[in-house]
Amino acid sequence: MGDLPQLLVSGIAAGAVYALAALGFTLLWQAAGVINFAQGEFVMLPTFAILIAIKAGASLWLAFLIACALAMLVLGVGFKRVVVDPLVRFGVIPLVIATMGLSIGLKNGTKAGYSALAFPVPSAFPSGQLAFGGVSFSYADLGTLLLAGIIVVGLQSFLNRTVTGRAMQAVAQNTDAARVLGIDVQRMVLYTFLINAVLATVAALLIAPSYLAKFDMGDSIGQKAFFAAIIGGFNQTRGALLGGVLIGVLENIVGFYISPAYKEGVALLLFLAVILFRPEGLLGKAEERKV
């Protein structure tokens, strides 16, 4: 049992990255009714942006800022204007299919335009461990937890304590009512897309050092983010956080106490259990949709 604290910290760190991507999932769903199946590729693309910027001579943090700006432009504004806006009036299904197509397109575009090979990405945190009470925690895990924690707390504060954040929540809860109240709905939706792009870039910064930059690296994180969002509750941002962390911790526990070979199945099992017994998610609220 001496390994349990290390397992938990490492699992929460991995889960925090899933949670960041899952958070984007739920935000887009709430604000614009978009289920983005290209969310994994939204993490992959900034990874390559970081990589290219570093190769051009930028430091890691400058490369991250450049990637954030590019992601906001391409995966935020571009995604909304080119893919979502023209299709949103046709309902959820066309958008789901469009994002699936986008996922395939982005993967193959990266493969053809850059390479099918993997590339190393430097870590934002120093190597080494912090020993604490006979247990050692890696700086990478602690740094990931810290940065993801700051992002999540910052985002929650923004959503709950600022006028813009509350306006965004109002749009998410009832678009028509928000419009009647004079809220610029389109602008709020755009902000959500921009936040999603930044969350994906932070996830890229945190996960790329261990995943390596590769055109298909988004498959796994996209899938886990989707599972995390469903497990936690698709209509709750807190649910995405819980889902992500739950997957990360359980993967580590199963990987350690049973076998690493079964690790990848944890998210799927959890997802199936939730779909069967609590389809609204662990923290989600059952909602009826207009037909």
């Binding site: 397992l7 991995a14 993967e251 580590n252 199963v254 990987g255």
Partner: peptide
């Protein structure tokens, strides 16, 4: 005896097991 998957991305569990 620690088995891992082809294309596996996260090896934290495998390495923890090896350490133990």
């Amino acid at each position: 005896d620690i088995s891992t998957d082809p294309g596996q991305l996260d090896f934290s569990g495998a390495v923890l097991k090896a350490k133990e």
